[in-house]
């Protein structure tokens, strides 16, 4: 299958506006690298899951791909075409082909607009896609399995799962090729979580969407993702086919994450690899491999430089000089 999205060594840097403290303190850093050299591929009809803890840069990566975060360097090819940057170094994507589903389902919907208006809005901005935006809004509602009676409701009259469906409908309004879903199941109950994920899987099959899911829920990754990437302090430590990684993680961080996942079987033998220590701050990036401060397999060589990638991205690749065998 052809590449829908190809990202090479993307870096996102935010300036730190120091105020008075910045002027007085010369040592104070002037910028923070939130995404620190990320490469990835997403093919048509495939799902990539980006997994990582809060603060690892997952959302910033998504924002950068939508042109909402300043890119320091790196290349992004969308459908074979290199995306331009504007003068502030934001990417200029073809907006209607890349859709974003925000993390907070209710918060991302305007409280003063009805569902009908919310769904018709994309067609009013990108004119020429629909002759009758109101009718298209109703079509979208049925696509995500909500009845016509939802059209006149306001966001506060929707449950979390319903608001999420409206978010899916809005993201799909313009027939995008790539959907970026930021924590699509956060805050949802297990019984509804399945509904939203099944809906995404069905729509993917129908429309051949490429999907990038950002999550910290490993349990769902196994079921929804073809490819996965483990993010830590703005870098991918391991990436590749999710089946291979689940069966045989090579990076110690991946192994710890997979083992940490609490099981509902009270008798489950816990072969825990408990990580000690704290997640270092982005401003004080550890030297060498950034994971060495918490790594159970750390050795002196780990402090020298960030390890090069081994293996192949399409199968399984990891950045570790002492990987698990």
């Amino acid at each position: 299958m052809s590449e829908l999205l190809q990202v090479n060594d993307l870096r996102v840097r935010f300036p730190i506006k120091g105020g008075l403290a910045g002027i007085l303190d010369r040592e104070r850093p002037t910028h923070v690298d939130v995404v620190h050299g990320v490469s990835l591929d997403i093919r048509h009809g495939e799902t990539l899951a980006v997994v990582g803890e809060s603060g690892s840069g997952k959302t910033t990566l998504a924002m950068a791909l939508c042109g909402l975060a300043p890119v320091l360097d790196g290349e992004v090819y969308f459908d074979g075409r290199l995306l331009d940057k504007d003068k502030n170094n934001y990417l200029v994507p073809d907006r209607k082909r890349i859709a974003l589903m925000f993390q907070d389902p209710t918060g991302s919907l305007s409280p003063r607009m009805t569902v009908r208006k919310l769904l018709a809005e994309p067609y009013k901005i990108h004119t020429g896609l629909s002759d009758d935006p109101d009718q298209s809004a109703l079509d979208l509602l049925s696509l995500v399995g909500l009845g016509n009676d939802f059209a006149n409701r306001y966001p506060h009259q929707l449950s979390g799962g319903q608001a999420r469906r409206v978010g899916v409908a809005r993201a799909l309004a313009l027939n995008p090729d790539l959907l970026i879903a930021d924590e699509p199941t956060a805050g949802l109950d297990v019984s509804i979580q399945g509904e939203v994920l099944n809906l995404l899987a069905d729509l993917q099959q129908e429309m051949g969407l490429g999907i990038m899911i950002i999550t910290h829920n490993l349990n769902i990754v196994r079921h929804v993702a073809d490819q996965m990437a483990i993010m830590y302090l703005g870098r991918f430590l391991e990436q590749g086919q999710s089946g291979l990684i689940f069966d045989h993680p090579r990076h110690p961080y991946t192994a710890a994450l997979l083992a940490a996942n609490p099981s509902t079987d009270p008798d489950a033998a816990s072969e825990r690899i408990e990580l000690t220590g704290e997640v270092p701050g982005l401003l004080k990036r550890p030297r060498g491999c950034e994971f060495h401060t918490r790594c159970p397999r750390v050795q002196p060589g780990c402090l020298e430089q960030f390890p090069d990638s081994e293996g192949t991205r399409a199968m399984q690749a990891w950045n570790c000089i002492h990987p698990l065998s």
Binding site: V190, S191, G194, L197, T264
Partner: peptide, 21 residues
Amino acid sequence: QKLLDCDPARIKKATRNLPVI
């Protein structure tokens, strides 16, 4: 029973069709 069935962690085989209540 249904709540436990829905938990994706308990479904060991990868599936695109997750159970719901």
